[in-house]
């Protein structure tokens, strides 16, 4: 059957255009607003430390360093190489401390424990401490983001 008049009136159509236009304007404002609320930050690709500072470490010793605004820890391994960790708990982001007496990393916020290799061994942490790559370049130790294998 053919209707003589349209069910969709000119008035409804205009209202739809108006609402749709206003809606898309507001929606398109949302992107720049949300874009501007987070400032840029780039984690450093590498941190260079004077190697002399770490020459005196005995195997198993751990020493803190600054991974930009986060704490980092360098551990001397028994084979003379170094391992580095970001000292931030993987549970809820608190900074961890190294407890030399127990040879463990400890997070005071929710009683999280990691062994000297950064493995989560007790408490709520879900994953090991984040690792960084350490390379000796001349007199410097270069600490880099670990490239995903």
């Amino acid at each position: 059957m053919k209707l003589k008049t349209s069910l969709y009136s000119r008035r409804k159509f205009l209202n739809g255009l108006l609402a749709g236009g206003l809606g898309s304007l507001v929606a398109s404002l949302l992107y720049p607003l949300l874009r501007s609320v987070i400032p840029p930050y780039k984690e450093p690709d590498e941190v260079r430390l004077p190697g002399a500072d770490f020459n005196g470490l005995e195997p198993g010793d751990v020493r803190p360093f600054a991974w930009d605004i986060k704490p980092g820890f360098i551990k001397k391994n028994s084979d003379g190489t170094f391992t580095a960790f970001v000292g931030v708990c993987t549970h809820l982001d608190c900074n961890v401390s190294y407890v030399p007496a127990e040879k463990k990393f400890f997070c005071a916020c929710h009683d999280g424990w990691y062994d000297a290799d950064g493995r989560n061994i007790a408490g709520p942490p879900p994953t090991p401490l984040r690792r960084l790559t350490v390379v000796a370049e001349g007199a410097e130790l270069v600490i880099r983001k670990e490239t995903p294998a």
């Binding site: 986060k70 900074n95 916020c109």
Partner: peptide, 10 residues
């Protein structure tokens, strides 16, 4: 200090 460990018993 942004890099200090969390104090105990926080």
């Amino acid at each position: 200090d942004l890099r200090a460990p969390a104090p105990e018993g926080i």
